[in-house]
């Protein structure tokens, strides 16, 4: 049986792995089969992670975190956790291959998944102009017109990135207030290729075989159509809790609930870190910090277990 298994491989998961490995807990990181490295794998420049004064590419940062975890002996499994049984003293994690891994402690760091608009034609046109990944698909919209929906940092980053290819990038946002940081917002506002459409909600996606436009409802009660060739959805994300929601307590917002200033969930030996516990900040550095907290909490829990056994 393992001392520590970490589910997830974003900044929280890998930082927990670095701390866990240095505490000689020989952690196993279940990275996922197609999303290893987490959301930063699909970003470009990360300019707010301390220690990189010139900025760092998201994938490079994650490869460095992975290498740092492996340097201290963390083991990586490039597979998906498909079910978790966390309620007993022995935690059991089933992965895609069918293998079952047993552990004394588990750190949940599954992050979050992109929110969809929830529109009828969204799935039909996904792959035909509706995208969640500007770095993947931006180049197909060279000299075209695209829209990014959303008002946070990721919407600003995607829009700014897309100006490399597209002639015109709309940022469509339901409000005129932005969650985005002033630095990201100002950069987008200053970009001559970006046009803001605020107080407008996307109500439909048009196109027979590929996206040709979107319909908008404006706050003043009017409606309009925007002709575009591509739609990039960046309206935030929801904590990825489906595998554990029947076992651990969640908050009203749907995150995994943790005791204040710790990573302790409602189950002994189960800790959580990163975006899956965070409804507010959702930054790589915050996730990394909470990953360190979780590894230290797991370490203390394992020490307490050992002390109990030696008293028995």
């Amino acid at each position: 049986m393992r001392d520590l298994v970490i589910v997830g491989s974003g900044p929280a998961g890998y930082t927990a792995a670095i701390y866990g490995a240095r505490a000689e807990l020989s952690p196993l990181v279940i990275t996922s089969s197609v999303q290893m490295g987490g959301d930063l794998m699909n970003t470009t420049e990360v300019d707010n992670f301390p220690g990189f004064p010139e900025g760092v590419m998201g994938p490079d940062l994650m490869m460095k975190m992975q290498a740092q975890a492996e340097r201290f002996g963390a083991e990586l499994l490039f597979d998906d956790a498909t079910s978790l049984d966390l309620t007993g003293e022995v935690k059991r994690i089933t992965v895609g291959s069918g293998d079952v891994i047993e552990a004394k402690t588990v750190i949940l760091a599954m992050g979050s998944e992109y929110r969809k608009l929830g529109l009828a034609d969204e799935n039909r046109l996904s792959g035909s102009g509706v995208s969640w990944c500007a770095t993947c698909d931006g180049a197909f919209f060279r000299n075209r017109t695209v829209a990014v929906v959303g008002g946070g940092d990721s919407a600003m980053e995607e829009a700014t990135f897309l100006t490399r290819f597209a002639d015109l990038v709309y940022i469509v946002h339901r409000s005129d207030q932005f969650r985005a940081s002033p630095a990201m917002l100002t950069r987008a506002q200053a970009d001559p290729k970006i046009t803001f459409v605020t107080n407008a909600a996307v109500t439909g996606i048009l196109g027979e075989t590929v996206v040709t436009g979107i319909t908008l409802d404006h706050k003043d009660g009017t409606s309009s159509t925007l002709e575009i060739d591509g739609l990039f959805v960046a309206i935030g994300s929801d904590p990825r809790t489906a595998l554990v929601e029947s076992q651990v307590a969640l908050t009203a917002e749907g995150n995994i609930a943790v005791e204040e200033r710790s990573s302790k969930t409602s189950l002994p030996g189960v800790f959580a870190a990163g975006d899956v516990i965070d409804p507010t900040y959702r930054q790589a550095i915050v996730a990394a910090g909470s990953g360190a907290v979780a590894a230290l909490d797991a370490q203390h829990h394992l020490e307490a277990l050992k002390d109990e056994r030696s008293l028995e």
């Binding site: 996922s32 089969s33 197609v34 999303q35 895609g96 792959g127 035909s128 509706v130 698909d137 590929v210």
Partner: peptide, 23 residues
Amino acid sequence: LNIPAMKVFKDGVVVKTVIGAKP
């Protein structure tokens, strides 16, 4: 327009398209 795009060709014709990385 989106990648990864996995297209199945049979007798020179696309008969199926799968978009996006999946397990």
